[in-house]
Structure formats: structure tokens, C-alpha cells
Amino acid sequence: MNRWPLLTTCIGLIALVSIGGAVPHGSGGSSIADEVRLASEALAAFNFDRAVRLFTAAHDGLERADPLWERATLGLALSTQYLDPPTADRALRAERLFRELADAETSPRFTARARLSLGRLAELSDFRGDEPDPDAAIGHYRSVYERWPELPAAEEAVLRHAGVLAERFDDPASLDAAIQLVESWLATDADGTYASLMHEFIGTIALFRGDEREAIARFQRAEELGLSEPNLSARTWWLIARFSESRNDDPETAVAFYTRIVREAPYSGHAFEARLAIERLKSAFPEIDAPTPDLETFGIDVELDGDE
């Protein structure tokens, strides 16, 4: 048997591996703190592979008592969770790390985050054959908002818990329970950081259930609190205006939000239609006394007029 093909291929592969040696390494001789920082930066840049490598090196050299340990553990767990492709091994490793961090209870923010992630791992099917465990997920979420209600993570946990319930879209009782849970939270913290998103959450459920009136009310409340994604404001304004108009029962609101689209979202693509709608509504409801705004013409005068 001729062994040359195998031998030369092996040499070729060895040479290819040596390419890796030609690439400079930037982290040699650095401290663990530097490694954690570099790993965190890699994670912040969506470079999960590099983050796992760097966090692993840092994590392995740290004692639990070290202040860096919770950072390295959280970073390694998050990076491992989102390595592609998702596999059972990776999910289990991430889960073990999150559990380790949650059990260590080093600091509330890190512990709460670990529990939220454990909930998410339980809630979703992370790899082929992974069976979601909604009850376990709810347990993790509940533990966060009951124990640390003052943290932003608590609001996130409420939304996640409600999300588990809302996933059963064909069960009205479950949808009602989702809304009730969020409502209860809003009753005690109406202006929280996540209150606007909570109203959007309820409004979106209402849309899918065909309750446009409730959807409009929720989106308006979210708008008053400040939309969680300002870059998508025009989309929300359009929905409020369109449904206010199509329901034919609140033309003033429709005109108000169409006007905002023309004035504040001239690049949304809907300004022209919004302006036509204003004219249409003013014609149908003469009692509406509102000016029809001019369209943005991309000229310097219009742009600068806004500054005056």
C-alpha cells in the first residue's frame, strides 16, 4: 500500500496548522484582569469563539473569592451559550456555569443575571431534541423579581415570566394570566425603566388577539413613557394612527399621530400617506382643527427651520 498520499496530506495539514503560529498573539504575558477585559471586549464584539477561549483561560486561574471570578464566570457562560452551532454540550456547560454563579451569590446583579439566563435555557429549545421546561423557567424568573424587586433584572424577569405564559397563544386563560402578571407589576411600578416595554408587550398581545382599542391605548401609554426603541417610533405611531382611523372612533388621535409622522419621521416612508390621511380625516370630521404639516423636502430651509 502506498503511504505517500497520507504522509504528504498530513504534512500539509501540519503546515496549515503552522499558519496559526504565524498569526501574532496579543495577550501573552497579560494579567488575568487584562484577559477578562479582552474577553469581555470580544464578547461585546459578538466574537463568541474568542471570548470563550479568553474567558476559559481567565476562569481556570481564578478562585471563587476573587472579585474577577463572577465576571469571568458570567462572561464564559454567556459566550458559551451563544457559540454556533448550539449543541447539547454547550448548553449544558453554559447551564453549569450559570448555576455555579447563581449558587455562589457573589453580588445581586450577577446572581440575578445568572438566574435569568438559567430561566432562558429552560424556556427555549436550545438544540435539537432539547425539551423546554416552562415551569422551571418560571421558577427562575419568579426568584429574581421576588428577591430583587429593586433591580432592573426584576422587570426583565416579569416580562420573561409573562412571555412563557404568552407563548400559549391559543389559550386565552394563559394570555390573560400573562397580561395580569405584567399589570400587577405596573401597578406597583408604573414608571419603571421597563414600563414602556411592558405596555408594548401587552399592546402587541392585544393586536394579535384583534383588540385594536386596547392595543392603541397601550401603545399610547408606551409612547408617553418613551418608547423603548426610539428608532422604531414611526412604526408605532403609524399603528396608533391607522387603527384610530380605521376604528372610526378617534380621529383626533389619528390626526395627532399622523402629524407626528410627517413632522418627526420624514424619512420613515409614511409621511406622504400620513399627510393624505390628515386631509382625509379633516374632510370627514370638519370639527378637527389642526394644521396639515408640510412634507419634508430635503431642502436646507426645511431642515433648519426646525432649529428656530
Binding site: V36, R37, L43, L74, G75, L78, R109, F110, R113
Partner: peptide, 11 residues
């Protein structure tokens, strides 16, 4: 979300 959490808690 994981990335933004890292930016918040780690960086």
C-alpha cells in the same frame, strides 16, 4: 442581549 449584558456588567 447577552452582548449588551456583557457591556453593562463586564465593561
Amino acid at each position: 442581549l447577552a452582548v449588551q449584558v456583557a457591556r453593562d456588567l463586564l465593561l
